[in-house]
């Protein structure tokens, strides 16, 4: 990404920066959420020693991971943490590799866009109906359903940036996967 950014045309550079910034914000949110999950569990464990409870642990812990995952998706993919099988791509020449990468990225974009639409319908349904998430404190279910919508939108945007870069810059390099 850092090397590619230099060769990006200006317009692509702007889109890419925009996408990157949003991904970072979303990932920061996820980091805060995981920390809150951690503290909630610890608080719950401590309270239980005194036969008390937060009565919120189930809502926060159960939904926390799902929300954090969706908010981390695009950023994780951007930083190369999303696994893929690269045996075949390693065996072929640059030209074929470029075509394969183009097909993969286009297919990924199409799939993510398609999935986003149906994830959005879930959100729309709970929003219009006013369905409730029923925990000790009930709240509108769309508070939860909005996160997959945001997360997949960011993922879609990021994959589009990749696709545009492939088409207009021809860049197929990806940073090494790090764990």
């Amino acid at each position: 990404m850092k090397t590619a950014a230099k060769t990006d045309p200006k317009w692509l550079h702007v889109i890419s920066r925009f996408s990157h910034g949003l991904n970072l914000i979303a990932a920061t949110f996820a980091a805060v959420l995981v920390t809150v999950m951690l503290l909630t569990i610890v608080l719950e464990v401590v309270l239980r020693l005194f036969s008390r409870s937060t009565y919120m642990a189930d809502a926060i812990v159960a939904n926390g991971l799902s929300i954090a995952t969706f908010m981390t998706l695009a950023w994780a993919m951007e930083s190369g943490s999303m696994i893929r099988v690269n045996i075949v791509q390693q065996m072929v020449n640059d030209r074929i590799r470029y075509v394969m990468e183009l097909i993969c990225t286009a297919a990924a974009a199409a799939l993510t866009g398609w999935l986003w639409y149906y994830i959005y319908l879930i959100f729309e349904r709970s929003f219009n109906r006013g369905s409730l998430a029923t925990y000790m404190i009930s709240f509108p279910k769309w508070y939860l359903d909005i996160f997959p919508v945001i997360g997949l939108a960011l993922l879609f945007l990021h994959i589009c940036v990749r696709l545009l870069r492939l088409i207009f810059v021809g860049d197929t390099t990806e940073r090494a996967l790090e764990i």
Partner: peptide
């Protein structure tokens, strides 16, 4: 697909993974 994506990761047990 969307229903499974939206609900599969909502689980107490899975929360242990990131921690």
């Amino acid at each position: 697909t969307s229903t499974i994506f939206a609900s599969k990761m909502v689980s107490w047990e899975l929360a242990a993974i990131p921690l």
